[in-house]
């Protein structure tokens, strides 16, 4: 009886929080687009840098692994590499953006009352805008180079993006939560990202898994980016959809999403103390 009423209050509090968030959606949007604009106000190419960064990084890896050490690469290595790079970049941006979102808005937090999840959400909006542009670029490159053809599977794209958004929000909320008391996190994130990049199927072809050590294969299979990148490649590049990817991505999004948001919301009343 007591547990039931407790659960009830958790649910109703969660609903209140969601209502509060929905009421402030214009603020989240204005903050996200404002930051996007401000960040690029002083560079000549502006918002294009969001796309250029993963593109140039992809070009570097293409030069190293596609040209200098060609080895065993898939025929469509360019779009294979770029698709992985863009998807990965979105997640890693959500992570760094989330970690910075609280600290760089310390003044807002100290002075105004609003659901704090607005801040990681606005960081996510900022990252997602760039990601959508880069997906457009990817499709154009795929069509122009003839390395992939657009199939009916592109209709799954909104669903894939939706699941990915939940995953990224959870991750961003988690890093935001941790970065408030432990600023040290910001120094660690680039290294975590680097290892994560190498454990994701971006610069190495899927055939690499066939002769990898069993523990390496397990580690990669447990990496949610393996599933997300696989799903994006199905939707955009026409490869068949693999059930394991669907299960892996949805499970990761649900666990990371709700865990991250839950940890964040539980902590948000204490944040101001540490800023």
């Amino acid at each position: 009886m007591a547990t039931a009423s407790h659960r009830q209050s958790v649910i109703s509090r969660a609903l209140d929080y969601l209502r509060d968030l929905a009421r402030r959606r214009e603020f989240a949007l204005a903050l996200g687009t404002g930051n996007l604009k401000a960040r690029n106000a002083n560079t000549g190419l502006g918002i294009l840098w969001w796309v250029l960064n993963p593109l140039l990084l992809g070009a570097v890896y293409y030069l190293v692994f596609g040209v200098i050490f060609p080895g065993r690469r898939p025929d469509n290595f360019l779009v294979y590499l770029l698709s992985g790079m863009f998807v990965f970049h979105f997640t890693s941006q959500s992570m760094t953006g989330g970690a910075n979102s609280i600290i760089s808005n310390a003044k807002l937090l100290a002075n105004l009352r609003f659901p704090r999840l607005i801040l990681p959400i606005s960081a996510l909006i900022e990252a997602a805008s760039g990601f959508l542009v880069s997906l457009g670029l990817l499709v154009s490159i795929a069509v122009i180079t003839g390395q992939a053809s657009i199939t009916h599977r592109i209709l799954y794209l909104p669903v894939v993006i939706g699941v990915h958004l939940l995953f990224n929000l959870g991750l961003g909320a988690m890093t935001a939560r941790l970065a408030v008391p432990f600023r040290d996190i910001n120094n660690l994130i680039p290294y975590i990202n680097r290892i994560w990049l190498y454990l994701s199927p971006i610069i190495w072809p899927l055939s690499f898994l066939d002769d990898a050590e069993p523990w390496v294969r397990t580690a990669i299979r447990l990496n949610p980016m393996y599933d997300f990148i696989g799903l994006y490649r199905s939707a955009l590049l026409g490869s068949p959809i693999i059930a394991d990817h669907v299960i892996g991505a949805v499970a990761a999004a649900l666990v990371v999403g709700f865990l991250g948001i839950g940890l964040f919301v539980k902590y948000e009343g204490h944040m101001v103390r540490y800023l």
Partner: peptide, 10 residues
């Protein structure tokens, strides 16, 4: 504080 939420670049 004054100017909370302001972004000087905008």
């Amino acid at each position: 504080q004054l100017g909370v939420g302001f972004n000087p670049e905008l």
